[in-house]
Amino acid sequence: MTAAGTAGAGTPAAEFPRPVPVPDERSAPFWAAAASHVLTAARCARCRSLAIPPDQVCPHCDATDPEFVFEPVSGRGRIRSWTVVRQSFLPGFNAELPYLLVDVELDEQQELRMIGRLLDGPDSPVRLGTPVRVAFEDLADGVSVPAFVLAGDPDSTGGSDSTGGSDSTGGSDSTGGSDPREGA
């Protein structure tokens, strides 16, 4: 944060590195999988629901011994909301501004939501229900964090619109999953 010697001394991104996650006992498997570009979610051994992040108490069945285990998920989902961040409170993102942040409901479970950057750029054509898939940003050796890209990519695997349905009204029934109850 010193002002001295900043001119020409490397990129802003180098001066303010992107913040990295500090894994703990509970989150370590998630970040280890992310480093291999695999998105995981935590499954409760009691009610089989997924959660991100896993709480001490399962948000779906209230079990105090949920024995959450991270398992891979498809990384596919639909946009429930978004914002373009033009001013960051974290200097490590200054070099990325402006960027699009998307609130995504993953296909695996109703209301299983994640927030990440949409790497297609701030002017990407997004709407409620736009399909996306996970992508990863490599921040350092062995440190990658999830983000998203529009799912219409040629290199996306499988169909680009597997769940069908039009939820332009933004209702919460977009995926019609067979999932257990929701928390809230």
Binding site: M1, F16, P17, R18, P19, V20, P21, V22, P23, D24, S27, I52, P53, V85, S88, F89, L90, P91, G92, F93, E96, Y99, L101, I115, G116, R117, L139, V145, P146, A147
Partner: peptide, 19 residues
């Protein structure tokens, strides 16, 4: 915040740009 590494709850959001 000048924090460049987030543990605890913020590890799930700040590194991905949600802060």
């Amino acid at each position: 915040s000048s924090t460049d590494a987030f543990g605890g709850p913020a590890q799930w959001t700040a590194p991905t740009g949600y802060f």
